[in-house]
Design a protein around this nucleic acid. Structure first.
Lengths: 225, 225
DNA sequence: CGCGTGCTAACACGCCCGTGCTAGCATGTT
DNA sequence: AACATGCTAGCACGGGCGTGTTAGCACGCG
């Protein structure tokens, strides 16, 4: 026993994941079948089932692998330091890294939507994949609105933020970005990339900032529900 | 020939539509199969195919019937006149009629999402169903922000609006509402109904209005893309 | 009453699916 | 060189799907 492995299981699984991602982009998450993924990767179904006993196990792995791929692709772009331009422009370029404004980001957003859909249909899995990423986007919005570097995760996610107004506007921006992304994906004929940029910057200009306190919004309670 | 009909075809089609809506709510649009709808309605597949030759014809009809059902349910609620409360509160209650804040409106939003999904997958159909409803929501937002009754459709959809700022904020509100609805559906544990209400009202309070021109947003171009 | 037409039900075909199973191949060890 | 074990390929079964076809039923009309 304990014979040295002949193949690298992790490498094989990663190959399967890449094939599955290609299928998701072509046919959506419902197209991720045992037979389909095996054919896309050039294998037989029996070989695939040596690594994933179930379709469920396959899809769960694919969701995880896709989330990892997205993190590696999107986060560095969003966290790249911005120096030039106004605060509005800096925040806009950060947010635009996550919006489906071109084919590459449309691909990324389609993959992200597939993950969210999968987790909506399978809510009992231990440890939601998208939750941490949602928090990361949230923190990114907060940090961007402050004009600071992203805050390290304090570990206490529900603790009230020191600046309730910034927290509120981060939540508003987060929601707005979700809507903008949905409109760009679902009704691209009505909301083009240029329109999205205009809308985003218009909203950002409406955000009250300390150095420009022209508009006061009465904050009643923190937006965490 | 021209023998009087023995059954009311429209009535039968409507029965099929209701059965299909139940299936959409249970299993999504992908569950709308010829066999499944026939079984849900208590028919045989042969009978169903007497009314719809294709699965495509069935689904196209179901999408249309669902859109009609939604219009009859949602539009009267949204267009009900608001008298009491501030403008923010009036607009909030209008918008909330379209948000998935309880089980009934979650059902409605799930049906609406199915329609949008279907039209995204079949873009070549003559006359998009959701386009007119998107315009209706857009006009509703504009009218609500103005505090007026809904404007009649001028027939010239791309004509620039007289008040560019209202048009801009209507588009921003529309996008924000889309994002809020998506968050309520996809991540209800993070965005509850109460949170959604707070966020919506916070955004509405930030909208500059003629009687409260405390904040000036530099409008550069109309948001139509 | 008998007939024709509209409607219904059921079956058949081919395809794709998940999954269990088994014979064969390749490789590291003895 | 021979073996044992991990891996591969392929088949088989049962089920769901869309769709074409066909036999049978019900009703209105002559």
């Amino acid at each position: 026993m304990d014979v040295p492995r002949l193949v690298d299981h992790d490498r094989r699984r990663a190959e399967l994941g890449e094939a599955a991602i290609r299928i998701i982009l072509r046919e959506g998450l419902a197209g991720v079948t045992v037979r389909g993924v095996a054919a896309e990767a050039g294998w037989s179904t029996g070989s695939l089932r040596h690594y994933f006993s179930n379709q469920h196990a396959l899809q769960a792995y694919v969701v995880q692998a896709t989330a990892d791929t997205l993190r590696r692709r999107v986060l560095p772009r969003a966290q790249r330091p911005r120096t030039g331009g106004s605060v509005v422009e800096q925040v806009a370029t950060i947010v635009e890294e996550m919006l489906p404004l071109d084919d590459e980001r449309r691909e990324e957003y389609a993959l992200w939507s597939a993950i969210v859909e999968w987790e909506r249909l399978h809510p009992q899995e231990e440890g939601s994949v998208s939750w941490n990423d949602q928090r990361a986007l949230h923190r990114q919005c907060i940090a961007a609105l402050r004009g600071h570097e992203p805050v390290r995760d304090p570990g206490q996610a529900t603790a009230p933020h020191p600046d309730a107004e910034v927290e509120l506007w981060a939540a508003l921006l987060h929601t707005f970005v979700d809507g903008l992304a949905a409109q760009l994906m679902n009704t691209p004929s009505q909301v083009s990339a240029g329109t999205a940029g205009h809308l985003l910057r218009s909203l950002l200009r409406a955000v009250p900032r300390p150095e420009q306190p022209a508009h006061h919004t009465e904050v009643e309670s923190p937006p965490q529900g």
